[in-house]
Amino acid sequence: MSLDTVVEDIREEAHARAENIRSEGETRAEEIESAAEEDAEEILEEAEREIEREIEQLREQRLSSAKLEAKQKRLEARRDVLGDVREQVEEELAALEGETREDLTRDLLDAASDEFDEGDDVSVYGRADDRELIESILEDYDGYEYAGEYNCLGGVVVESDQSRVRVNNTFDSVLEDVWEDNLREISKQLFEQ
Rank of each mutant, 00 (worst) to 15 (best):
E139N: 01
G148P: 02
G119Y: 06
G143H: 14
R106V: 07
S113N: 06
V122N: 07
V122T: 13
G148Q: 03
D107T: 05
D121E: 15
E118L: 08
E118P: 07
D142G: 13
Y144A: 15
A112F: 08
Y141W: 06
E115I: 05
V124S: 11
A147E: 11
Y146H: 10
D103S: 13
R106F: 10
V122R: 06
A128N: 03
R127G: 06
Y141E: 06
D130N: 03
D114L: 14
G143L: 12
E118H: 06
G143Q: 13
T105A: 09
D110H: 00
R106A: 08
E145H: 14
A128D: 11
D120F: 02
D103H: 09
G143P: 13
G126W: 10
G126Q: 08
L108M: 14
E118N: 07
A111C: 03
E115M: 14
G148T: 05
Y144K: 04
I137R: 04
S136Y: 00
L138E: 02
Y144F: 15
G119K: 09
D142C: 05
T105P: 10
Y125N: 03
I134Y: 04
D140N: 04
S123K: 14
A147R: 04
D142W: 11
E145L: 03
S113L: 15
A128H: 05
D140P: 00
D121N: 15
G143W: 11
L133W: 12
A112T: 11
V122G: 08
Y141K: 03
R131H: 02
G126H: 09
G148C: 05
Y144S: 10
L109K: 04
V122F: 06
I137K: 02
I137C: 03
Y144L: 12
A128G: 02
L138C: 01
S123T: 10
Y141N: 00
D107N: 09
R106D: 09
D142R: 14
D110E: 02
D142M: 09
D107G: 05
G126T: 14
R131S: 07
E135F: 01
L104A: 14
A147M: 07
Y141M: 01
E115K: 15
E118A: 13
L138P: 04
E115A: 15
A111I: 10
V122M: 07
F116W: 08
D110V: 00
E145Q: 12
R127M: 12
R106Y: 09
R106T: 13
I137M: 04
E135V: 01
R127Q: 13
E132S: 14
T105C: 11
A111H: 13
A112I: 07
E118T: 10
D140V: 00
A147W: 07
Y141R: 09
S113H: 02
D110Y: 00
D130V: 03
D129L: 01
D142H: 11
T105K: 08
L133A: 11
A147P: 04
L109V: 06
R106L: 12
D117F: 00
A112S: 14
E132I: 07
F116Y: 07
D142F: 08
R106M: 05
A112K: 07
D103R: 13
S123P: 01
G119F: 07
D142P: 14
D140Q: 05
S113Q: 03
E132G: 13
R106G: 01
E118I: 04
D121W: 09
